[in-house]
Design a protein around this nucleic acid. Structure first.
Lengths: 198, 198, 198, 198
DNA sequence: CCCTAAACGAGACGGTACGTCCGGTCTTGAC
DNA sequence: GTCAAGACCGGACGTACCGTCTCGTTTAGGG
């Protein structure tokens, strides 16, 4: 008897347990760090049986991921500031990103999330669809506005533009390969805008 | 007497064991992946006592890291090709990087190494010093040659230049956020050179 | 309001479910053995909700016990053979008992039942009343007949007599402390009859 | 890789752990009863890793069994009292057995042991060899003495004699099928001696 | 004939324990 | 004193069941 694992019925899922698990996960990542996070501890903190976690998530990584999804659910309709000055606007956004990376409260969980995504292609796909996608779309919308204003080339590849802007920040932060300062953000913006000029 | 762990005498270290451990580590990362790599398995595969691993390395990550150091020992004196055409040279190098990332043989170990570095600031420092540093220096040397040839601005920040070039590739690869093609490498080079023009 | 568990109404009990549960129990004891018997498995096999089991039985042991009661319902009016020769009759009955103990079909369930009874005084009481009692009464009736025929002492303690006869068989079987052969049964009968002679 | 479970080296076994485990087992059986005894609890109480238990014992039952072996190690050379009066001596011994069965301190562990033996043929074999065997030999020695004294038949089957004596007590105790009194023990002895008379 | 209340199947839930794996420490005997 | 070997304590893993608790869905009188 190969014990066919019947799949659970989502309509009967306990929302209370789901919330408790995601909240416990977020708390524990902040408290003990991602490396020492255990399903056992999540279940205990959430007042939940371990099976309830394994029933609804494939892996610890999936729980971690979901705990972030929930955090940033309101981001969807988000739009970036548009003062008409693409350079100023980008620098503001990039400096905010730098500040977020520097904030020790965010540092640990975001790092956990990124390690999880880097390890698991499935989560990476979900990440792009649910988290990165909408945010990137908002950013590209701002770049399109700049295209219309003639501030960057009309035929610029906006996906590439985004990567030229953010990847250097991301890499410095993830690998700690250099100081992550507002000035650095500014320098990146200056260079990339130069590359994108009409 | 509180067992003061006298530190081992490196002169008596068994080179044979060291090699066996590093080799077993490389093999196992390729075979079972980084997530399922265990000290136990390394010791068994290497025909070595676990203590011998713990005696000489702080953590599993340190072993993984060292297993790469050994791999790339000959890289030190390396210089990049210099045909006089910075654009062609950069595209060649970047396309090689893309190919390396795409090679399934390298994929797993490099990913393991990067996860380890992202998790452990100490290893990150070692990484910069021992691995990234020399390679980056060679790359910067090529850029300096281009500066002298007037192909890129004399006052360009070469560290930044390197990051603008490599970070987009790195990010796409690590997060699987898009296709990693030679054309993509070319596009990045084109943009960055534009930003760096005198 | 502390959920007073109103007790179920037996008149509305589903006979179909009851039968399915008892049958599934018997099957599973034979198939996987008593130690690995689980309420979950019984419910699944019987196509029944777990609650239906817990509604009508106190414990797994109670189900096991009941599954035997049902098996041996027709035994009540049973009478032992009476050829007039107590020795021959007893030997026949005892040999039959030996055969039953040796039959692998009966072995597992009977053992399960005995372990359950040995663990739970309540079940033991039920066992005496519902199963052992009637059977013992039939056996004692045969002994009384022998008393009237002057084959065993008129003042013999028949309960003790039964125990002298059956306990040695039972012990050998339960603890596997020796071979359980027809000859052994005969020897026991011979000795006990000698002890009971007028 | 079928993970060949290499067998442990008994010469390196920790005697301290072994003792702690057996002692914890005895304590827990007395405290919480056999049904609620868990390997987890034994390990915790003994201050031992669970693996250390699973390394040296096949099952929980085997641990329980061993914890009894250790208890009764001094019994080996034991000899029964021999006043020359077999009836008096047997009654004394049987009454002692009755008392032991009645003692609530012994009740739980002995019952646990018997359930374990009844469930597991391997343990049953060990039981006969290590525990029951020596004790039975002492009892048979006393019976042989009675044979020499002409109190019981010279050709009596002493194994059978032992079973006729003890099985009724054992059965009454295990199944709680009747009161276990000194008088009952006496009655059994009287009958069995009558059956064994020369 | 419908209404309603109970029993029912299904199975999610909070838990406990399972038996396994591995981390990191400690011990033994060979070299 | 390092080494291979591996026992040890501890703790987390992912699974199996426990007994309880909803969920709709039958089902069977009583109105």
């Amino acid at each position: 008897m190969p014990s066919v694992p019947r799949k659970p019925d989502p309509t009967r899922r306990s929302e209370r347990s789901r919330q408790a698990i995601l909240e416990a996960t977020r708390e524990l990542i902040s408290e003990v760090g991602y490396a020492k996070l255990s399903v056992e501890a999540i279940a205990a903190r959430a007042g939940v049986g371990k099976q309830t976690i394994y029933r609804w998530w494939r892996s610890k990584g999936a729980v971690v991921f979901d705990s972030f999804l929930t955090l940033s659910e309101g981001v969807d309709g988000m739009a970036l500031p548009d003062t008409g000055d693409i350079e100023a606007d980008l620098k503001a956004v990039m400096r905010a990103t730098v500040a977020e990376f520097a904030d020790p409260t965010f540092e640990a969980p975001i790092r956990a999330l990124n390690l999880e995504i880097a390890s698991d292609p499935d989560l990476a796909a979900q990440y792009r669809e649910k988290l990165a996608g909408p945010v990137d779309e908002a950013k590209k919308e701002r770049l399109r506005s700049a295209q219309r204003a003639g501030q960057i080339a009309a035929d610029a590849d906006l996906d590439l533009a985004l990567e030229l802007l953010y990847a250097p920040l991301y890499q410095r932060w993830l690998l700690r390969s250099g100081p992550l300062t507002p000035e650095y953000a500014d320098a990146v913006v200056d260079h990339v805008l130069r590359a994108l000029r009409p």
